[in-house]
């Protein structure tokens, strides 16, 4: 039963949002042509010379390109794995708690870092990880040599992943906790009557109950393997750790705004967008097919 009068109002409601999207998302998209140009500011995008795939060829010839793609994938994958495992374990532990007040306090505390910006958290981290910082004080108390975490290519990725987990794990437990509450309590009762101990209940009821959620999250995170965390890395890195920590987004930012290689920057950015788009399309269709999940 379509109601045409209603539909007109639906269009009207969508109008402001769509206009804003056109203005601030679609119009700038035409700037992608810079990737195929020898862009000259005085000529603008309409009169600059077209150079075809030259910027892309230059990109593939640069030794840095391989490095930033590899770094991006490694950092992002590590973040995805730890970003799923840690909250999963934490949610299981939290699920075992009966004391409601304790549960709420723990949740409140661990959600908090999610709401802090990377600027703030990086400021805190830089302090903490300095030689005089609390982490190295503890390392020294335990008899270790102080470590320059942010200037070491062997530690830097670890710092990125650990601090990302710190910021997000609490928040990511929410989805597991929701799934846990969705498990039928009668299953536990029945298992208890059958004499299953706590560990067996975990193995035979809880984990299977969470499996669809895990698969779903894993599938959806496929779309993120090229997002290694721009704001975090921009605020934490320095030239010494480019080797292990420079990612596509930070490279594009530097090439475009600091080294003034607009064509190259746009080309790298475009490649990333396209690959990401494909990955997300694949992951969403997988999710729709196997988990019967539709996000929109």
């Amino acid at each position: 039963m379509r109601n045409w009068a209603f539909i007109r109002h639906y269009h009207l409601m969508l109008l402001p949002g769509i206009v804003l999207l056109l203005l601030f998302s679609v119009v700038p998209m035409f700037g992608i042509v810079i990737a195929f140009q020898d862009f000259q500011p005085t000529l603008g995008i309409f009169r600059s010379q077209w150079v075809g795939w030259e910027n892309f060829e230059y990109m593939f010839a640069l030794p840095d390109s391989r490095l930033i793609f590899v770094n991006t994938m490694i950092i992002a994958s590590l973040k995805i794995v730890f970003g799923m495992v840690v909250p999963f374990v934490f949610a299981l532990l939290l699920h075992e708690v009966i004391h409601l007040k304790f549960k709420r306090i723990v949740q409140t505390v661990v959600y908090l870092p999610h709401f802090m910006s990377w600027v703030i958290l990086s400021g805190i981290l830089i302090n903490m990880l300095s030689l005089e910082g609390i982490v190295n004080q503890i390392v020294q108390l335990l008899g270790g040599e102080p470590i320059l975490f942010l200037q070491s290519n062997s530690w830097f990725r670890g710092v990125l992943v650990a601090s990302d987990v710190w910021k997000e794990f609490g928040f990511n437990t929410i989805i597991y906790i929701a799934a846990l509450t969705g498990i039928n309590p009668h299953l536990y009762e029945a298992a208890a009557i059958d004499g299953a101990n706590r560990f067996q209940r975990l193995i035979y009821i809880t984990i299977p109950g969470l499996l669809p959620t895990i698969i779903l999250l894993a599938t959806l995170s496929l779309g993120n393997v090229l997002n290694a965390g721009f704001e975090q890395i921009l605020n934490l890195y320095n030239p010494i750790v480019y080797q292990s920590g420079d990612i596509i987004d930070t490279y594009v930012y530097r090439a475009g705004l600091q080294e003034v290689q607009y064509g190259l920057a746009t080309a790298v950015g475009l490649l990333k967008s396209v690959v990401s788009f494909l990955l997300i399309a694949v992951s969403y269709s997988l999710a729709a097919r196997f988990a019967n999940y539709r996000i929109f």
Partner: peptide, 16 residues
């Protein structure tokens, strides 16, 4: 969804 996933890059965005 298209607007969420695609962007034209920093410089065109700034110019707009």
């Amino acid at each position: 969804i298209f607007c969420m996933l695609f962007s034209g890059g920093l410089i065109p965005w700034y110019m707009t």
